[in-house]
Design a protein around this nucleic acid. Structure first.
Lengths: 346, 346
DNA sequence: TTGTAGGCGTTATCAT
DNA sequence: ATGATAACGCCTACAA
């Protein structure tokens, strides 16, 4: 592998000049810079990251922590974040930090983060993760690792957070059914013990309750039903629900995947959507549009971009104030499609 | 941040011993190892990756190159791969290498890979990417970067590849419809100019053709229809197809998302699936099961695990032979559900 | 504007 | 089994 001296020799300058020229530092004459660039190109030279990081003191890397990357939300956020981070010169270190269960093991393999990355992007991780000691105060006076949380279960002290108001989102969804005239509405939500269930689910359940209660629903009218995560989980839970007796006239699912599963179950049970029962989700999943699912959409990609931008600001030292970092809440949008309608008059 | 000398001092040994002890090298007495471990723990010491990499010569990182991470396939593969790579001590460097269009720009920001990672995992990337010079021969005698391709559009010379036989998969799907008695079958495939269309789509189209031709279909019976990627793309394309005149009795989609879109379009057009038209996909998407979509499933997670395992073998130097690396083809499974049936007798 | 030299924190080599 | 002591390849004062 070619090293910096090779380039220096070829260009007829010192290694220091090569370093400066290639990194675009101002104290280099245009002429030399050109010569150095040419030499570097000819040799196919690239600075060794380990060496520059060691010498320069910055990792040039952002850790992306997700429960798992194979979920539409993580994927959308990370894709969007990468679009800003890469051009800014940062690499993405991907790490799954496990769901609720694994999180308890003190976030295994996270202690090395401060030395390995410049900042952290925490996506859709459960509350326990936020309490990880690494995020709080690295041993002995090192300043805390900068970071941002996106739709996390709990804020990390000192980190800004971006997300949506999940309580309000679910409330909006529920209110929509209420306004259509529905009264017997069940909330289908992710089983909290399921690692795949996102932390947002909990808030969304609260949103459902609030809306129902505000509408004067008696306590026994709060109909909550837990499902394993994913479309299949939603289908199974709904099937079970239908087997129990009179179906509800409306279903609010805490995420679109569950909603889609519910629709499948309803169709198979011979019930028509929305003629017999209305279904609305929360998420704005890619599939929702094609399926015609009514939903309260959250701007996943926008959240990713915003988080990345915030991180970059912080890293470039633009904002280094000690004021408690902000909590940005992006708006959700109620999107009415073909799965919600007034209940059948009986 | 605590450094190795701090630990050495506290443990009363030299830095060399600390290094050896912590890395589990054999030439350390159990007693000292314990003392060192304790000291390290007390100080919360973690070796600086930049320094170890610089000194040790290995990056401890695997680059994961995907067109985009927000696709069910990439996500599934990467999640599975991470499960092997992390415990083995490797970090994942995530990078999107752009689709067809961006790939032409000589894979911007890939030239640094040899110095940054120990190996590469190339997932579902188009053919052009495989030709990237970095993968072939780093300048001046450095040995080529090890790597594996997963479901890539073209093999990288010298790298093993894992994947499925996409031609056969689509052929199987098509033959299924053929055997049910369908004759007027259209193939719905991803628009090749769409960055989001996976390279496998092309092969799958061939599979359709082969099956049709083998069944004695005249050339004008080969009905191919391109769609933008995703469920919505499949829906739109199918809607357009239906608007053109007599619908086919069967649709083979080159991926499940397109198949789901097709189903939506058919339903909206008042056609019943499978009574009026049968639909079968290829992929084994998470949603397929819940939706009841018949499909030819590929083992995405298994591919990821296999790729990671292969990489680890190669990295541990277990196999360093110069024989041309293997091409592992995992079997696909025809899964019959509720979207395929014999055509209506007319 | 450019060159010189010391240091970044580990690991590897060679003694002991 | 353990301790000095060079590398490792680059960056950053400081000097010129």
């Amino acid at each position: 592998m070619t090293r910096i001296d090779d380039v220096a020799r070829l260009a007829g300058v010192s290694t220091a000049t090569v370093s400066r020229a290639l990194r675009g530092l101002p104290t280099v004459s245009e002429a030399t810079r050109q010569r150095v660039r040419l030499a570097a190109e000819q040799l196919g030279y690239t600075a060794s990251p380990s060496a520059s990081r060691l010498a320069g003191g910055k990792a040039g890397t952002v850790a992306v922590l997700v429960p798992r990357i194979s979920s539409w939300f993580s994927g959308a956020v990370v894709d969007a974040a990468e679009e800003l981070l890469r051009p800014a010169g940062y690499d993405l270190l991907l790490r799954t930090v496990g769901g609720r269960s694994r999180a308890q093991e003190r976030l295994p393999g996270t202690a090395d983060l401060p030395k390995r990355v410049d900042a952290v992007l925490l996506v859709a991780t459960p509350a326990l993760v936020s309490a990880a000691p690494v995020f709080a105060a690295p041993a002995f006076g090192g300043r805390p690792l900068p970071g941002v949380t996106v739709a996390a279960g709990a804020p990390v002290p000192g980190w800004p957070s971006v997300g949506v108001d999940d309580v309000a989102a679910a409330r909006t969804a529920t209110e929509h059914l209420l306004q259509l005239g529905h009264r017997r509405i069940v909330c289908l939500s992710g089983d909290a013990t399921d690692d795949l269930t996102r932390p947002a689910d909990l808030d969304r359940r609260w949103g459902y309750r609030e809306a129902m209660l505000a509408a004067g629903t008696p306590a026994e009218g709060i109909l909550e039903f837990a499902a394993r995560a994913g479309v299949e989980g939603g289908r199974q839970a709904t099937a079970k629900l239908l087997a129990r007796g009179t179906p509800p006239t409306g279903i609010v699912a805490t995420c679109d995947e569950l909603a889609m599963g519910a629709i499948v179950a309803l169709c198979r049970a011979g019930l028509r959507v929305p003629a017999d029962v209305s279904v609305i989700g929360v998420d704005g999943h890619q599939f929702a549009r094609a399926i015609g699912l009514s939903t309260v959409a959250q701007p996943a990609a926008e959240l990713g971009r915003l988080a990345a931008g915030t991180l970059l600001d912080r890293l470039s030292g633009a904002r280094h104030d000690d004021t408690e970092p902000g909590r940005v809440i992006l708006p959700t949008r109620l999107i009415l499609r073909e799965t919600t309608a007034p209940p059948r008059a009986h």
